[in-house]
Design a protein around this nucleic acid. Structure first.
Lengths: 337, 337
DNA sequence: TTTAGCACTCTCATGGCGAGAGTGCTAACG
DNA sequence: CGTTAGCACTCTCGCCATGAGAGTGCTAAA
């Protein structure tokens, strides 16, 4: 258990290190905060904090830097969140509301805004229902023997697919087939769509129905992410060395928020989860922290996250991720279902 | 005009520099190629090549490196293309044919494959018709007073959009409206779609028609690109310095192949265009080369490109870009229209 | 025209060095 | 017993000098 003074010192170390990216010395703390106690006392406390695992130092006589545990304690118990200022909100909301394009543009813009808000990589996933159901399938003639299948889910996602036809078909025939299939498959989700396919005869019709089924399945799995701010994150001094930067680019390019949505499924809306360094099951992301929040509602939910080095301004990042998430939910509610 | 021997030397300098990324010395050329002439002679020739602007050296006594002009001459007159080996082809075609998903997955996979084939950033745009025409619009009820508009172009591209309704509508009413609009707008392109909107009365119907028009326009402008291989390109020794790497990431992240499709519109299919360094109108991309090729046919065309430092293995890159482009065209023809 | 020889230039890796920053420990102090 | 001054010790980092090495350009001779 930490004494009040130890907590206070830990807090100061984190704040200082987050700001300067330099190991924090006992002397620096006394000077910056005009402390009544001497640097020697600070050193004693620091030694204790280090024994408990909250801080380390990179070599014998450098200042201290927080460990993952130190950050965790900071986030849990010490930090006071930095509120999102009114003019910050206004700018963001202005930008977000005036987007003219479709859902994808909107999500991509959100990632850009969030990333510039916190100076790190931001990731946003498409909202999706826990089980997407087919709302409507449509067939469009492309040429004499090819058709385009468009499957629309009830959360508004769309999947297109080109189908080869054995028999030449007209648009009228395709319409009729689409009507039949809609009667059969409307409301189907990935779990039960296969069961509904029985009784079909015409091979082209079977193939089409199967393509619809696959579309539903693919959309269930697909977790499309929008990522921005790579260059922001790379400006951090932790990447002042080429190898680390290259490593970071490779890591983040490949990053797909695998399973993050699932892992947060029990979180209630509005809560924000912080995953610090080693806590991340994904090896290779263990020097990184992730701040993640769900957005949307039970019908359609997605995830918005910020990824950055463990030395992250949690104070600013956490409330901003939460704010963006709630804003997205709100806009989605206003506009959608 | 260059003598034969000067050309030969220039060729060797380019080959050597592309391979090693080190300035090429007169001595190295003699050794590596067991030349009959002495290094002093090479030096004389090199001095002449430099005076003509084909090569430079970074400081007084370093070896030579090709200038943009040198690369240009090399690409134009000296290079022999390195054919795409049979097993290379087989691997690529195997991977490309077995993709299960939709168009987007296929394009994204193509970018990945090409990038690993040439070890640089690869970019692929969606195929699009020169003037996209509306094939079909569809309206789906999302809730009592919101509808989803799905506009399908005749090149298979799709645009979705959520519409607020003033009056509550049923799916049946939406179907009827869609039928009316299709009669009115089918075949319309961005140029003439506005003219066809006259005579509509119901404000919701007008709004929908306008949304369709905007969708067409947006698709005309949108040049969605799929990019991969950033980490490949960054492994090149030219980015061994942090600032240059950061610069490169920023540059390439923002890169959108702006207007590249337009600028190649006169190229005949199968030709491959090379833009070297300063030749690129885009400032900030002037240390880069772009190898770009159209794919598809007159109905639906896109662009596939490789971006890398001017020190690029043109010999390998150019035939591989051309190969991928022709392969894409082929697959598109087989499957599509 | 080619080439050997050589002086000259510039880079780059190396090592030594000293300043500076910080710590940990000890001993004294209240 | 907690706190603090003092101090020795450690480690980093920037700086500079230095020398080897790589290459060129020039000159003069073949």
């Amino acid at each position: 258990m930490l004494t009040d003074r130890q907590s206070a010192i830990l807090g100061m170390v984190v704040d200082e290190y987050v700001e300067t990216a330099e190991p924090v010395s006992s002397r620096a703390l006394v000077d910056r905060h005009r402390l009544e106690i001497s640097s020697a006392t600070i050193r004693n406390e620091m030694a204790r904090l280090e024994r408990e695992g909250y801080i380390t130092h990179p070599y014998t006589s450098a200042g201290r830097i927080p460990s993952d545990l130190g950050y965790r304690f900071y986030v849990e118990a010490l930090m006071s969140e930095a509120p999102v200022a009114l003019d910050e909100r206004r700018t963001v909301e202005h930008q977000l509301h005036q987007v003219a394009g479709g859902l994808d543009e909107w999500l991509s813009l959100t990632a850009t805004i969030l990333s510039s808000l916190v100076g790190n990589v931001a990731v946003v996933t498409r909202p999706r229902t826990s089980t997407a159901r087919l709302r409507h399938a449509q067939l469009v003639e492309l040429s004499r023997d090819t058709a385009l299948l468009v499957s629309v889910m009830d959360d508004g996602r769309v999947r297109q697919r080109i189908l080869q036809q054995r028999q030449p078909v007209t648009q009228d025939q395709l319409n009729a087939r689409a009507t039949r299939l809609n009667g059969l498959l409307a409301g189907a989700d990935a779990a039960n769509v296969r069961d509904r396919l029985v009784g079909l005869e015409d091979p082209d019709e079977v193939a089409t129905a199967r393509a619809v089924a696959e579309s539903i399945e693919e959309l269930r799995i697909a977790e499309e992410t929008f990522l921005d701010g790579l260059n922001m994150a790379l400006r951090q001094p932790e990447f002042s060395d080429v190898d680390r930067m290259l490593e970071a680019v490779t890591q983040l390019q490949a990053y797909r928020l695998r399973g993050l949505l699932e892992s947060t499924v029990d979180d209630h809306m509005g809560s924000t989860r912080v995953i610090i360094g080693q806590e991340n099951p994904d090896t290779g992301l263990q020097d990184w922290s992730v701040v993640v929040s769900r957005y949307g509602d039970t019908d359609a939910a997605g995830v918005v996250a910020v990824i950055g080095p463990t030395r992250m301004a949690y104070q600013r990042t956490i409330p901003r991720v939460r704010y963006i998430a709630s804003l997205m939910g709100q806009i989605l509610r206003d506009v959608g279902q």
